[in-house]
Design a binder for these strands. Structure first.
Lengths: 346, 346
DNA sequence: TTGAAAGCGGTACCAA
DNA sequence: TTGGTACCGCTTTCAA
């Protein structure tokens, strides 16, 4: 690989001049510029980004830290981040943390050592301390899907609370009269907010009790287990709002196995809007998060930050949307108390 | 961030000595070593990997180039690659190529400029020329899921031919008497091999004809479209082998919509063994590729190569496995010619 | 408008 | 066993 010196020599100019041509930010005589460009072509010169990085420039690399790329929610985020990064001539470092603090810390260290320009973090347990540590190094951070509590960082997230309300209200509106919730892990803010949204609606109903809430681990198995528990306690459940789609799909499977018809006997609604929800049978009603947009927004903000075009740190809350599909369409209300809901909603 | 010179000064030794302590490959006096280590702790010294890279060392970064991380097959590969990379203290560059040649080329250029140590490529159209170009730079390459034709590169792939045979034979064995194939894109070697495998079996049967093969685009929609075409031409199809799981799932959906019972009327088998196959209703019989292992193997080979521990370039063909599930379990053979198959298989 | 040269933060060779 | 220092390939003053 030819170096900048080779080019300079071949073009009969100084290294500095070649550098100027490369970076097009200082005046260079048109003729010399042409000459240099020509030589660069001929030699197939490719400037070393490593050397440039050492000389104080950005490496044009951002990192995306997430729990597990093989979990269906994240690939779409990653895709979005990479698309935007590419658009701005940046590359993507992928970090699977498994939500393990030591892996997260280790990655943060590596980012410093590799002069990563910025990082998008999706994590539940990054401590403020670690983030502060990162901040000393001036590496811009964007938090994805995280709480508002980190005042010092930009946060991109979806409106989980409202989404949960939409889901619960939808189940009520189609006639469900005993709606359970399969909640996510307590330590996840997103899960907590969805639970709150569910609570804010169901609280007002006489049939509501705490045992209508079961916790799952955001995966398919968690949904199955939670469903079994719920149905054991409350055989008359006729509506289920699961805190994410994977658990909803698990619950769906389990209901089938138990011989319950969905949606005729039990209606079910998920959260996230991952691709799988269109493939299940019946197709799953869900609260669609703008997954791609979340990633894209985070990437845009990050890149603007590290370009210095953006300094404010604020919260970007993206809107969610109810997608009605088969798993709630066709529910048969077999009870008499149709009127309860009306009193509440008007 | 403190530099190596800061450490040297604070410890009262030379830069060279500090470097020796860092790299532990030359003898250093125990006492000085301790002293230096202590100072490094105190100053929270983190050696710049960029500087090290410029000085001729490896960047400890490998790239994974694939069509689209949001396609369900790839995240698991990526996960495997990253796990192994991490194990060997390497990081992962993620490149979505969308199978677009210009994106692939552009990424290869960037890899050179960033001193990427090695790359795993999953692509259908990387030309040998591009690869040769990469080879000049001595960047080791491992091809994943690609043809044997690239004699100069290590290749990791699954036994597609055998897998297709397994699938087809399974359908025959459960009693199917007219088996169609939803093939993948003609330009994909994997798809071609699966088609060959299907052909090798069905060729021998009187009912076989070319119109029992329809081509899809390896996605859900492709499966739907292909199925409609097949059933229009051959309403009596009772078995379907799809070249990948997504198309099988699409076909499944479409069959449902048309009122055909799966597996009672039509049995169906996919290929890949992605996670989705366990979630569909009915659960999908499929040929399981060792997806994670494919990625892990590729990463291991690559890292061994760039460490110089491996120089031979060969083909690693991993075994596939038939996973029998509901989509073929319970097929009802309504015909009389049960005996045909027996003649062939014994 | 261009060139010379001092870094950037390490590695590694040569001496001592 | 250690220190001095050229060098990796580029950027960026400072002068010319």
């Amino acid at each position: 690989m030819p170096t900048i010196r080779d080019v300079a020599k071949a073009a009969g100019v100084s290294v500095a001049t070649v550098s100027r041509v490369i970076n097009k930010n200082e005046y260079v005589n048109k003729d010399t510029e042409q000459k240099v460009l020509k030589v660069m072509k001929e030699l197939d010169f490719k400037p070393s980004l490593v050397a440039r990085g050492l000389a104080g420039k950005k490496m044009n690399t951002i990192a995306l830290m997430l729990p597990d790329i093989s979990n269906p929610f994240f690939p779409e985020v990653a895709r979005a981040v990479e698309d935007v990064a590419q658009q701005y001539d940046h590359n993507l470092f992928l970090c699977n943390s498994d939500n393990l603090e030591h892996k997260e810390k280790s990655y943060l260290e590596i980012m410093k050592k590799k002069n990563i320009d910025g990082v998008i973090i999706i994590s539940n347990n990054i401590s403020s301390k670690d983030l502060e540590h990162l901040r000393e190094t001036k590496i811009p951070v964007v938090l994805l899907d995280r709480p508002a509590s980190h005042e010092n960082y930009s946060v991109v997230r979806a409106n989980n609370y409202k989404g949960a309300q939409l889901a619960t209200m939808h189940l009520l509106e189609i006639g469900c009269r005993k709606i359970a919730h399969i909640a996510g892990p307590k330590n996840l803010i997103t899960a907590k907010e969805r639970l709150k949204g569910y609570n804010s609606i169901t609280n007002e109903y006489p049939w509501f009790e705490q045992t209508l809430i079961a916790e799952g681990n955001f995966d398919v198995q968690g949904g199955k287990t939670a469903l079994k528990k719920l149905l054991a306690d409350h055989p008359d459940i006729d509506g289920i709002f699961a805190s994410n789609d994977l658990m909803a799909l698990g619950a769906l499977k389990e209901l089938k196995k138990m011989g319950k018809e969905v949606p005729q006997e039990v209606a079910i609604c998920g959260f996230d809007g991952i691709y799988l929800t269109e493939l299940s049978e019946p197709e799953l009603t869900t609260i669609q998060q703008p997954i791609y947009e979340l990633g894209a927004k985070a990437a845009e903000i990050l890149i603007k930050k590290l370009r210095g075009e953006l300094t404010e740190t604020k919260i970007y809350e993206l809107d969610v949307q109810l997608i009605k599909r088969e798993s709630t369409n066709g529910f048969q209300n077999s009870r008499q108390d149709n009127t309860i809901i009306k009193g509440v909603f008007r």
